[in-house]
Design a protein around this nucleic acid. Structure first.
Length: 335
DNA sequence: CGCGTTTGACCAGCGC
DNA sequence: GCGCTGGTCAAACGCG
């Protein structure tokens, strides 16, 4: 196993190019061939055969790995589909509950603490809050881990019981809380979680349990949208931003690419890096479209995963390492 | 000038 | 009742 051969293997990718035996096994310079051709021909034939056998093994390994990856992607897509189905079912059930409870009468006040009649109070404009009631029986949590180009995003959507002491019981029923974990650059001090929506920051506070400040955002895309977002760096891992969403959007995701130069460009640009939008309310209308597009989405997701994996140098290095080790195991011990 | 962010003050719930 | 704490308000400020 010569060094050049091994160096050649460092370029291994999922699309291993094993169809270059002639080039790589290429004979030495022509003059040398003329000198050694007769003398070395028999021995070289053996070497070529051995190398070709190794190549075949590598090819087999490559195929196996590719199959494994395909199977993995297929399983992931399948699981993703099941998760989507569960989410849709849960959302449908919750919407049902919302209808039944809101018919009962008193709509909860949008303001938890004060009955102010400030200009921001949108209760009048939004007589039936779009918030879906959380499933009271048993928490429902979904965690999806996707590795986009830059950020690792883990989204956990939870219908949680009253976690906050301050939140009244009825509010608990009416608010769906979701958490989004975003891997952020530690040097980036901004508490901006890029999720494709437009947020307006209305406050910042240092909390007791975390030295990092917590930022409070409101959805600024639709005045009637009462979704709130809290963003705070994780106390354990400062590179992780924890975005807590309260409520659900009652509007579609804003257009991704907007005007240039505006501050919104940062959010718009963020859309590119964020493959998974935040937990959006799955209203019946959106739900149907989501179901219609789920197959395509899953396919896109699988393709994205495959592309991400193939572009990930770490994955590539690990694959090369595994392949090299396997090849060294299988290859005749000529060293 | 309009819009978004910053930041200190205020409010309300909770525990003691 | 008091203090602590989280959440919110709104004036001041900055930026395009």
């Amino acid at each position: 196993m010569d060094e050049q051969w091994m160096m050649g293997q460092t370029s291994l990718s999922l699309g291993l190019n094993i169809a270059r035996p002639k080039a790589r096994l290429g004979a030495p310079p022509a003059t040398k061939v003329l000198v050694e051709e007769d003398f070395m021909s028999s021995r070289k034939n053996h070497e070529v055969e051995a190398l070709e056998a190794e190549l075949r093994r590598v090819g087999e390994e490559n195929r196996r790995l590719s199959d494994m990856l395909r199977a993995l992607v297929a399983k992931y897509s399948d699981l993703q589909g099941k998760v989507s189905g569960m989410m849709a079912a849960a959302s449908a059930a919750n919407n049902h509950q919302t209808l039944s409870t809101s018919e009962g009468g008193s709509a909860a006040s949008p303001s938890r603490k004060r009955a102010r009649s400030d200009s921001l109070d949108t209760a009048g404009r939004n007589p039936s809050p779009p918030l879906a009631a959380a499933g009271s029986g048993g928490g429902f949590a979904v965690s999806v881990n996707v590795g986009p180009d830059r950020d690792q995003v883990e989204c956990t959507s939870v219908h949680e019981p009253c976690s906050s002491k301050r939140v009244r019981a009825d509010e608990c029923k009416a608010s769906r809380v979701s958490k989004l974990y975003v891997h952020a650059d530690p040097s980036d001090l901004s508490l901006v979680v890029k999720d494709g929506y437009q947020w307006r920051k209305y406050g910042q506070k240092v909390t007791k349990d975390n030295p990092c400040p917590r930022a409070y955002f409101r959805c600024s895309f639709a005045p009637s949208c009462q979704v709130k977002k809290k963003v705070q760096r994780s106390a354990e891992d400062k590179t992780v931003l924890v975005a807590t969403y309260e409520g659900e959007h009652n509007h579609a995701q804003p257009p991704k690419l907007q005007g240039t130069g505006s501050r919104k460009s940062a959010e718009a640009a963020a859309v590119r890096a964020s493959p998974a939008p935040p937990p959006v309310q799955q209203q019946p209308r959106q739900q149907s479209t989501a179901e219609a597009g789920s197959a395509a989405d899953r396919k896109n997701l699988a393709e994205q995963m495959a592309a991400t994996l193939t572009m990930d140098p770490g994955f590539k290095a690990a694959l090369v390492s595994a392949l090299s080790g396997r090849i060294l195991e299988l290859s005749p011990s000529d060293s």
